[in-house]
Each structure stands twice: as C-alpha cells, then as structure tokens.
Design a protein around this nucleic acid. Sequence first.
DNA 1: CGGGTAGCTTACTGAGAGTAGGAAAGGAAG
DNA 2: CTTCCTTTCCTACTCTCAGTAAGCTACCCG
Lengths: 207, 207
Amino acid sequence: MTDAPRRKRVPRAEREQQILAAAEEVFAERGFQNTSMDEVSLRVGVSKPMLYEYFTSKEGLLLACVARIRADLHSATIDAVSAAEPDGPRAVLEAGLEAYFDFADRHGRAWAVLLNESVIVAGPAEEAIEAIRGQQTQLLEDVIGRWLPAASPARVSILAHGLVGAGERVARWRLRDGSGIGPHETAVLLADAFWPGFAEVEATAKR
Amino acid sequence: MTDAPRRKRVPRAEREQQILAAAEEVFAERGFQNTSMDEVSLRVGVSKPMLYEYFTSKEGLLLACVARIRADLHSATIDAVSAAEPDGPRAVLEAGLEAYFDFADRHGRAWAVLLNESVIVAGPAEEAIEAIRGQQTQLLEDVIGRWLPAASPARVSILAHGLVGAGERVARWRLRDGSGIGPHETAVLLADAFWPGFAEVEATAKR
DNA sequence: CGGGTAGCTTACTGAGAGTAGGAAAGGAAG
DNA sequence: CTTCCTTTCCTACTCTCAGTAAGCTACCCG
C-alpha cells in the first residue's frame, strides 16, 4: 500500500468544516470543559495553531459549532412551519414542535451540549450564545404576534420564551429517560398543554 | 490600629459557609469557566488547599453551591405552594410560579449561573446537577399527578418538564430584558398560558 | 505542660490554553 | 524550469491554573 500522500494542503473553507465536525463530536462526547484543543486537532489530523488561526479561541470554536447547529435547526423549523401554515395555527404549532424534537433526536448529545447545557461562560461568549438562541425566540414571537395581534408584547414574549423553554426541557427529558414516545406524539402532547392557553389569551386579550 | 488577631481558626461548618458564599459570588460575576480557585480562596481569606479539603474539586465546589441554592428554592416553593393549597390548583400554580420568579429576582446572576446556564460538564457532575434539578420536576409531577389522576405518566411528565423549562426561560428573559413586569404579573401571565392546557388534558384524559 | 487533632499554609507538579516564528506546498509569472 | 509570493501548516515554546505533598500551629483535653 503506497501509504498515501503524506501531507495534503486543504483550502480553508473545507478545513474549517472538518474542524467543526470534529469539534462537535468531541464536545458532545466529553462536554466543553473536558475537551482539549489538542484532542480536537489530533482528530482532524492538523496541528493546534490551525484551530486558533481559524477560530481564535476555544470559546470561539464552541461558538462556531453552536452557530452552525442553530442555523440547521432554524431552517428545519422554518421549513416545517411554512409547510404547515395553510392548515392553520394549531398545525403550525405542532409542526414546529415536532421539527424540534426530531432535530434533537437526530443530533443526540450534540444538541444537548451545544444548545442547552452548553456553556457556563460569562462575558461576550454568553452574549453571543444568547443572541443565537434569540433567533429561535424571535421567530416564535413573530408567529405568535401574527396570530394574536391583540395581545400585549409582554404576553407574546412570555408565550414565546415559555414555549422555547418547555421545548428544551421536554427534549432533554426525552434524551435522558426518553421512554418510547416519538417526536410526533410528544409534539401533540405538548401542543395540547399549550394550545388552549393561546386560545385563552386570545379570548381574554384585553385584560 | 492594632490590626486585629492575625490568624483566627474557624470551625469547619462555618468556614464551609463562608467559602460557599464567596464562591457563589465569584461564579455569578465571572461564570464557572473564568473563575479561578485562587480568586475564591483569596476572597475568603484562606488558602487554596482548604477549598480542596472541604470540596474536593472545582466542580465539587460548584455542585455544593448549586445544591445549596436549589435547596433554598425548593423550600421557598414548597412554602408558597402549601400556603396556596386551600385556594385550589389554579392558585397553587400561580403561587409556585410567583415564588420562582421572586427567587430569581432576589438572586440575580447567581440564579442564572448556578441554576441554568451553568452546567457545562459532562460526566458525574452533570448527573448530579440534573439530579438536583430533578427534585423540582419531581415536586411538580407529584402535584400535577394529584390533580390529574387520569392523565398518563407521559402527559404528566411532559407537563412538569415543560412547565419547569418555561419558568426557566421566562425568568431568564426577565433578567435580561426584564421590562418592568413584576414576579406576580409574570406568574399570572404564564399561568394563563398553561392552565387551560391542564384543564384540557383533564377533559380529554382518556385520549 | 505534653500530646492529639482539626484547621491551616507554603511550595510544588502537570495539563492544557494560547503564541512566536518559521517551513513548505502550490500556483503565477518570467 | 526558476523565482517569487501567498496560503496552509508545523515545532517548540510560555503561562495560567487545577490539584497535591508535606508539613506547621492553634487550641482542647488531660
């Protein structure tokens, strides 16, 4: 076996993707804290300074991972939601939740580490992560605001943040104890819990 | 100024409390990642090996902080909930939520770091933190199970976890953008969103 | 006034984040 | 093919910080 070209140069964009993939893997396995940059670099087959060249710091690397997976989630949700739009708001709610639980299922621990438990940090990284999470909530606030034009901004915000939080915790529970309830059933059950609350808000909208 | 007795020995239990207080402070200011044990020990006025003597590791120290603040929250919630018990389930829900938001207000960033964002780690510490969080959910599952004896375990779990998650995210939102909505109003708004869902579940309990 | 122990310290080791400074692959131009 | 330049990449460090070894000392009890 000609043991292959010893060193191959790879264009930046591609290398970045390789690094992100490896990092996501290791973060998911070990958690942020217990992941060493040496291990990531080893797994990519590249030396440590490259990681710093491309991502500036360990936190930067984490952040890039979070941004990428969030973006995937975001577009998966948008697809599901807009496909359900013609069937009315209740269907939208269910579809959105189902897309979320499905995504969590497919990404397993990576989802848990990168999207929830993740960080720890204070300072800029925390801000950045909250901002990325904000996209999700923003999307929801838009949708809810469209259904319930009479509701006060505070009500809309509370519904949106509450729903996001509920989704996160329920998904987490599924990952841990996740008795055999599928994404669809889970979505229906959670929608059952929330949906009448939306209607109620609508009915009592003027306080 | 007789600059006071140079060194005073302090019994273990008391020292532990001092350390926990200082650690909570620093974790809240800087986050777990950016806190050094040296800084904590400096702030207590004791040397680093003491921290390890009493708490075994940095994670151990974090864990002890989490356990303590969780215990406070737990008893505050129980007090509020049992006081509201005679007024019926809806009052219990509101009282519980209000106690939670109130607690979050009083503890500010410490609440955020220690009870939500915190974790970070994988392995035993993650388990331990999830277990502590589990008390909260367990409490809720008990209460909900008592109201809705006909609901399936999965429904009860989803309601409990969903409610916990909703509470966490809404509290977090209040901490950040927290437009002037007080704990009580917030609790009422969130209860509005959830309560009819509980009733609905009851009505359709047999699927 | 010895001893015993609980509380305490100084002074280290080792792991891992982050960096300095340079090598060399590969393409473009002569 | 040779020279030059850019981009990719590496070896070999520094420095901070979690965690430890090896005791010292204040205080209590006889």
